[in-house]
Design a protein around this nucleic acid. Structure first.
Lengths: 130, 130
DNA sequence: GATACTAGTTACCTAAAGGAAAGCGGTATC
DNA sequence: GATACCGCTTTCCTTTAGGTAACTAGTATC
């Protein structure tokens, strides 16, 4: 009694579990900074003060907390080099590489979204009030 | 003086702008509920109380606020049918379809992440304290 | 008149996110 | 001794997210 079409339509249970996978992902990746930090460190391992300058708007307190969280969740490692003054380099783990596609899709979407917003601002302005 | 390798390495400016695209995306998609709601409504348009039951843990206040935000950002439309009692159906717009890949990648990642967490709990338990 | 269904709203509260500004311990340099 | 750099921490504060519980208006049914 099962048609071919039925096979392609996810069951209610499948949808609910897919939603919970998305929720699981959001639970560890939540907030304003985690994905931008992972993206940045995947490009290049960085020192603390280097990131403070590079990541627009982040403060030392917030950066320290986010890096701690990311280390706990095994997205990054903290490497201390006994130079003077001490050098601490943060770099991503192999587990961060599993986020490659997510980061890529999110970046692409953000780019086109910014274009859409810009366009809608232009549209608003062209309807000039008399 | 530019080598072939240089061409493949994104410039610092390119990275900074990609980071800001990701931040732009997070700005509209932030929080615990927006992506799960978009995913759910993309599967099937739903009524308010229907979603209250379907989306685990959401309360009417939070649901109403999230739906308002999503409507403002043109991810969903709110359709009112003059039945008795009134029926309000929320459905996604074509713009939500642009999130298809993001949702897919995030769902996949969340699924394997849950597996990883489960595994690490199993690993912890197998190191049994005497 | 009581109850139930619709789609929410209202008031109150807690916890977490996030920001501003200053400070700290260590070392090195002027 | 003063200043500077590094990698943070501390304190204080505001904002936002999110949750609890009760309640509302409109209509219909028992």
């Amino acid at each position: 009694m099962k048609s071919i079409v039925d096979e392609d339509i996810p069951t209610k249970e499948e949808c609910v579990s897919k939603v919970s996978y998305i929720s699981d992902a959001l639970y560890v990746l939540n907030g304003k900074w985690k994905l931008p930090l992972i993206f940045t460190l995947r490009e290049n391992p960085r020192r603390f003060n280097e990131m403070l300058k590079l990541i627009e708007g982040i403060t030392p307190k917030v950066l320290a907390k986010e890096l701690r969280d990311l280390e706990l969740n095994e997205f990054i490692v903290r490497k201390v080099y006994p130079t003077t003054p001490v050098t601490v380099i943060y770099e991503t783990t192999a587990y961060s590489d599993t986020l490659k596609n997510v980061l890529h899709e999110l970046g692409d979407w953000g780019e086109q979204h910014r274009e859409k917003i810009k366009q809608s601002i232009r549209d608003k302005n062209s309807i000039s009030p008399i």
